[in-house]
Design a protein around this nucleic acid. Structure first.
Lengths: 345, 345
DNA sequence: GTTGCTTGCTAAGGCGCTTTAGCAAGAATT
DNA sequence: AATTCTTGCTAAAGCGCCTTAGCAAGCAAC
């Protein structure tokens, strides 16, 4: 029952033509002068045998695998980054590419092995994805290959897909200003960009966008509470510290959703209401943004789109080199007073 | 600079031996009577040229790709299921296998195409992963191939990896009983197994394990609140309903963490404390189990291990067919009175 | 001194596909 | 009637590897 897959030779034999003819016809080549008779005989035979091409053989022959390698650090651990992968898979499907996946779990040695294995398999290109936007280093084998960095940068000037943090942050401030929030604005997570030298380049851009917006709208950020770890507890503590001040903040921008989640709880515990007493907005559009009441207004990280774009850049031979930034749309939900939600809250 | 990769022929030329010799030596074949001289010349030449085998050619020649195809429904969407994939990737690495990934987004047509593409690439086996344990259907192309179902079953009796829901549930009840909780026990999410005909087979087993435990310990589940959708709000409402009863439940078993999350909030809102007033335990060990205060005692779904096992079964020619169940360990955290947490809470 | 075994290595075919060059027969040209 | 063009198709080589069969030389045996 488990009889051999039919090959082109089998089709040729059944159709009574040469293997060459089969190849030509099934490839849909134009300009070959094969008669209609032959064409239809080939198609019929192929259908009868359930012929499917052997992609390995084709790859060997054409030197193109129609496959791309995806090397992630620990992307499938974090929900955010699995969105990157989902986007890449979607993009790959659109380009009829197969994706070979490897996960390094952060180990450079594993990364090297995985990269080499993928290159040895003849992938047409590589995508390196980082779960947090980082400057990463790549194994040497990667550098000889067409590659795209997804949510990451390397020292060299290679194709990279990154979120447009600057404009995302800026447009959040614009929205807040437009809703009338121009004073008593606080930031939890970091201070002005010039005060934060040690921050990753993406966070830096996020801060620059915010402070550019503040400047443009004459906003003096009321109080900032820099915290190292962006976790629930720091958000909670940060918010409590803010609430203990003389003037209570009316808008709090948290640098990520976890901070906002903690801050929300602190606001709630203080007997205050969101957004009536305090408005809150944040970054990332993490799933937990929907677990808070009311749901968070947050600047979303467009991971899926980024993943798709990575594949597009990889496939397009004349992609402009360097960074490609993807819009970070503001998801307006109910946590900001004066803004009409764009989705059901 | 981007000069051709060295082939065995190049190595042979440099070493002054035949390509056959190179193949034999580099394959580490024993029993070939090649002299030490030849062996070392080959190794030296290979090293000098940085020779790496072309895996596509090898696959074509040996009819083994050393690759497995992973078809997920929407696994990389859900954090739980991305753990399945992580496990599979880990297992694949251990077996020096490459993983070709495809995502169907639930569309049977995409599933068929993806499966065929993977088979056309000559994968040595297929893993189908479902984000919720389900009975799934597979495209015909899959059935001719060696395959493992990960977190899923099909009608036919094929290799399948599933969580051991029955024993997981049973051991939770055992633990609760051991901690002295034998009355005022409530369940949120579903009723006794015989009352729930429409539930998926995994949930069925979970219920059977629970009720078996109840019977063994003489526990009469105090009240059950069946709800269709296992969401926060239903957990919240369910708990409120329970709290409105005459006798207040002392232990609540939620059938998943989201329910527990909602229930926790209801308990908190009612001015009660966990675990002093009400103990709570649930299933899944979702990330949100750590977002609740106190952190949830929950029966964990061993996704990573399941993923690893799937690869092991696939690679092992004489795996016993049928279902392979993986233990569901109870993660004891602080939400149950009388149980010492096994991890920091 | 033919036969036979061992040792050390290579020739060559095959995996299934693509692609280039080219063959044979008829049609068009001179 | 010989030459050149088309037309319609196929032979054959090549992608890079693995593997089987077998060759040549040296040695042992009869």
């Amino acid at each position: 029952m488990a009889n051999r897959r039919a090959t082109q030779a089998d089709v040729a034999a059944l159709a009574g033509v040469s293997p060459t003819a089969v190849s030509l016809v099934l490839a849909g080549r134009t300009g070959t002068r094969l008669s209609d008779t032959v064409q239809s005989r080939v198609h019929a035979a192929a259908a009868e045998l359930g012929y499917r091409p052997n992609l390995t053989a084709r790859a060997l022959s054409t030197q193109r695998s129609h496959a791309i390698g995806l090397v992630s650090d620990q992307a499938s651990v974090s929900p955010e980054a699995s969105a990157l992968i989902r986007g890449a898979l979607r993009g790959a499907r659109a380009h009829r590419m197969t994706v070979l996946t490897a996960e390094t779990e952060g180990d450079p040695e594993i990364q090297r092995e995985a990269t080499e294995a993928l290159v040895d398999r003849g992938v047409d290109g590589l995508i390196f994805v980082a779960s947090r936007s980082r400057v990463i280093t790549l194994p040497e084998a990667a550098m000889r290959t067409r590659l795209v960095l997804l949510n990451a940068r390397i020292a060299e000037d290679r194709l990279a897909v990154l979120p447009d943090e600057h404009n995302g942050a800026r447009s959040l401030v614009d929205l807040l200003a437009q809703a009338g929030h121009r004073d008593a604005v606080a930031v939890i997570g970091a201070g002005a960009p010039e005060l934060e030298p040690d921050v990753t380049f993406t966070v830096k851009r996020r801060l620059e966008g915010l402070w550019e917006g503040f400047a443009a709208h004459g906003i003096t950020p009321f109080a900032t509470v820099p915290e190292a770890e962006w976790e629930l507890s720091t958000g909670y503590d940060g918010m409590r510290a803010l609430l203990a001040r003389e003037t209570r903040p009316k808008v709090v921008i948290c640098l990520n959703d976890r901070l906002a989640f903690g801050a929300s709880r602190a606001i709630h515990d203080a007997g205050l209401r969101i957004p009536e007493d305090v408005s809150i907005a944040s970054f990332d559009d993490d799933v937990i943004a929907e677990y808070v009441q009311p749901q968070l207004t947050t600047v979303s990280l467009p991971y899926v789109r980024m993943g798709e774009l990575a594949v597009e850049l990889l496939m397009n031979d004349d992609s402009a080199p360097g960074e490609h930034l993807v819009d970070m749309p503001v998801h307006v939900r109910r946590s900001v007073r004066g803004l009409a939600p764009t989705e059901q809250g």
